[in-house]
C-alpha cells in the first residue's frame, strides 16, 4: 500500500516539477482535442442536416381506381427502410390542389366529380433507398404512377456517403495527431528523467513502479485536456446554435441533449484513452531500452 502513496507523490512531482512543460502539453492537448471535437461536431451536423433533408424526401404513389389504399399503406409501412406512409384521400388531394391554385381554385369546381386518385406519401430513412422503393412500387399491380425527384435523391445519398467518409478521416487524423503529441510529451518527460529511471532500475525498482507515474501523468494530461476542450466546445456550440438561429434559420444544428452529452463523454473517453495508451507505450519502450544489457 505504501507503493501507491509513493507513486502518487512521484506523479505529482512529475507534473509540478516541469510545470512549464506540463502546461505546454496541456495547451497542445486541449487544442488538438478541441479540433478533433470541432471537426466531429461539424461532420455530425452535416450528416444531421443531410438526414433531415432526406427525411423530407417523399415518394408519391398514385393508385389505380378501386385499390385498397389503407391495406397497401400497411404493407409498405412494414418495410424496414420506410419511415412513414401517409394515405392521401382524393378529397385531401383536391384540397391541396385548391390551396395550390389559390384564386383560380374555382376552376377545380368545374371538374365536377372529384377525378383525383387515392395516393400514398412515403418517407424513407435514407435517400439511397429511394430508387429501390420506386422499383418495388412500380412493380405493384395496384400502383398507377410513381412520382419522386430522382436527381435530388441521388445527390443526397452521395453527399451523405461523402460526409460519413470525410468525418471518419478527420476523426482518424485528429486521433493520430493527439496520440503523437501526447506520446512526444511523455517521451520528453522520460528523457528529462532518463538518469533517474536508469538509477531506479539499477537499485531494484520494478518496471511497473517506475512506469506508473508517467502513465498517470499521461492519463492526467489526456483527461484534463479533453475536459477543457469539452468545456470550450460546449460553450462555443451553444453560442453557435443561438447565432445561427437568428442569422441562418434554415441551418438547424443538432440540439438533442442526450446525444450531445454522449458526444462529450466520448471525447473525454478518447482523451483519457489516448493519454493512458500513449504514455504506457512510450514508457514501456523507454524502460525496455534502458533495461537491455550491453
Amino acid at each position: 500500500m505504501g507503493s501507491f502513496r509513493y507513486i502518487f507523490r512521484d506523479t505529482l512531482r512529475l507534473i509540478t516539477r516541469h510545470w512549464g512543460l506540463s502546461i505546454l502539453t496541456l495547451l497542445t492537448t486541449v487544442t488538438v482535442l478541441f479540433l478533433l471535437g470541432l471537426s466531429s461536431l461539424f461532420a455530425l451536423n452535416l450528416r444531421h442536416m443531410v438526414s433531415r433533408v432526406e427525411g423530407e424526401l417523399v415518394v408519391q404513389a398514385y393508385l389505380k381506381g378501386g385499390s385498397d389504399a389503407t391495406a397497401l399503406a400497411k404493407r409498405i409501412r412494414s418495410v424496414s427502410y420506410v419511415r412513414d406512409v401517409r394515405v392521401i384521400s382524393p378529397e385531401e388531394a383536391l384540397d391541396r390542389l385548391r390551396a395550390k391554385l389559390g384564386n383560380q381554385a374555382r376552376a377545380v369546381t368545374l371538374l365536377g366529380e372529384n377525378p383525383l386518385p387515392w395516393g400514398l406519401e412515403i418517407q424513407v430513412e435514407k435517400a439511397s433507398f429511394v430508387s429501390m422503393l420506386v422499383r418495388d412500387l412500380v412493380a405493384l399491380p395496384s400502383v398507377e404512377e410513381v412520382v419522386y425527384s430522382g436527381q435530388l435523391a441521388d445527390k443526397l445519398s452521395r453527399i451523405s456517403v461523402l460526409a460519413t467518409r470525410v468525418s471518419a478521416v478527420i476523426m482518424l487524423l485528429g486521433a493520430v495527431i493527439s496520440s503523437l503529441v501526447i506520446f512526444n510529451t511523455i517521451r520528453i518527460a522520460l528523457y528529462s528523467r532518463s538518469e533517474e529511471i536508469r538509477v531506479m532500475l539499477l537499485v531494484g525498482a520494478t518496471r511497473t513502479y517506475i512506469a506508473f507515474p508517467f502513465v498517470l501523468q499521461g492519463l492526467f494530461l489526456g483527461t484534463i485536456g479533453a475536459a477543457v476542450a469539452n468545456g470550450v466546445l460546449a460553450a462555443g456550440y451553444a453560442y453557435a446554435v443561438n447565432v445561427l438561429k437568428l442569422t441562418l434559420p434554415f441551418v438547424v444544428l443538432l440540439r438533442n441533449t442526450p446525444f450531445l452529452i454522449k458526444f462529450h463523454l466520448i471525447l473525454l473517453g478518447t482523451g483519457m484513452t489516448l493519454g493512458w495508451m500513449c504514455s504506457w507505450f512510450a514508457v514501456s519502450r523507454f524502460i525496455s531500452g534502458a533495461n537491455r544489457p550491453e
Binding site: 516539477r17 533517474e196 536508469r198 538509477v199 532500475l201 539499477l202 537499485v203 531494484g204 520494478t206 518496471r207
Partner: peptide, 19 residues
C-alpha cells in the same frame, strides 16, 4: 529487480539524483 535488491552499489559516478 528482485535480484538487484540484494545488492548495494556505490557507482564510480555516484549516480545521485540532483533534484
Amino acid at each position: 529487480p528482485y535480484y538487484r535488491r540484494n545488492l548495494g552499489v556505490v557507482f564510480q559516478d555516484f549516480k545521485l539524483l540532483n533534484d
